[in-house]
Design a protein around this nucleic acid. Structure first.
Lengths: 126, 126
DNA sequence: CAAAAGCGAAACCAAAAGGTTTCGCATTAT
DNA sequence: ATAATGCGAAACCTTTTGGTTTCGCTTTTG
């Protein structure tokens, strides 16, 4: 019944610089593990592990071709990141939204201002 | 002489769910540490540490007001994320770019296809 | 068919991450 | 003045992360 619940989410997956380079590399073309690992100063096994993490986050797909496993970029999951980011964009480039924000924050006492209100209800977190 | 070299970059900073919630919370309003920590199921000290990490990544600023330290969102550094992301957007919503991609990948032998070429020259990694 | 190439799994390790509790120090309230 | 609030620093602990080496299995090459 439980959903597949991928162990790694996109945010975690792209947190590591090596994994971001992997995405960059694979965005150019599909590539087998050994070839990929030639671009990195670490063992093939280490690279393989990073690839698995990316795969769990859905950011790469692999397919077996003969004895090799070729990986390719799968960028769709990055849309989640884009969505998350879009919430914050208004804070740096939407002057009107900023203004609205300031206008709305002028009321009441500390309890109400800093209390545990409905603040985390929206889902632009996680 | 050495540049400040922040220990935490934006990618790392937002990798943790708690820290994303912190950003969300602070996007609503400036808030002192204790009030912030009431929103989380962990000690004030733990929250404080997360705030420091966000601060090192430039995602929050703090100012002392009497005995309290108030934190507020600073969204500018997220632009780096947006830039990084923009590189990958073409892979999911730009059909022409995709086509171009396919058209260009049909040549040559393994060495040239998978070798250590100019692949990592651009800086949309890191 | 024997040797080599391509990978993943496993066992292991050091360092980083995410928490906790305790303490001390300013600042504000009684 | 004393007590209470608000915080950060420090010491400590456990789990996760990022890496290594070794082994074994499959597939290709000679």
């Amino acid at each position: 019944m439980a959903a597949p619940q991928p162990k790694y989410d996109v945010f975690q997956a792209i947190a590591d610089p090596t994994r971001r380079q992997l995405l960059s590399l694979l965005s150019e073309q599909e590539m087998p593990v050994t070839s990929i690992s030639r671009h990195f100063p670490m063992s093939r096994t280490a690279v393989s592990k990073h690839l698995r993490i990316l795969a769990e986050a859905g950011l790469v797909k692999d397919r077996k071709v003969g004895r090799e496993t070729r990986y390719r970029l799968e960028s769709e999951p990055l849309q989640e990141l884009k969505r998350w980011l879009s919430y914050y964009e208004r804070f740096w480039d939407n002057k009107l939204a900023m203004l609205k924000h300031f206008v709305e924050s002028d009321s009441t006492d500390e309890a109400e201002r800093y209390g545990k209100l409905e603040v985390l209800k929206s889902d632009h977190n996680d």
